[in-house]
Amino acid sequence: MLKKILITLSLITISSSVLAYEYKIGKLEIDHLYIRVTTGTNVSAGFMTIENEGDQPDKLLSVTNVSFAKQVEIHETTMDNNVMKMRPLNQGLTIPAKSKVQLKPGSYHIMFMGLTEPIVKDKKYKASLNFEQSGSITIEFDAEEAKGYYQEKHKH
């Protein structure tokens, strides 16, 4: 009985996480948005999943209309021989046709610098995402605490 309930629950969770998207603009579906809760520093990172269902590539060019940070950039983190490097993507982040790009720790993120207020749990943070083809959309990030690699990997 318990097993049945668990299976049903997990099926619901799986199907809802597959079917539901939080935002849609043009052929883009934007999902799993969150921003990291700050712990004394005035920087934070925003994460999300962007899926392009169209057969043309698109590009996230910039993130604007951010009231809580003075400077916002699209960043890429790379591991080069176990050395972590974080760099701005000045040309924007390409979302290839018929594919999904995940902004996640150790990969891409929206970098918020010069925060004018701390990022606190349970608050929402607004921003506009500007795409080359699909145009602009206003989204909201949920504030979440940092997850470890192990929790990050098994999340979904």
Partner: peptide
Amino acid sequence: TYCPDVCPTTLQ
């Protein structure tokens, strides 16, 4: 501490 990505993930 100003590392928003890999440092908090690793410490977690």
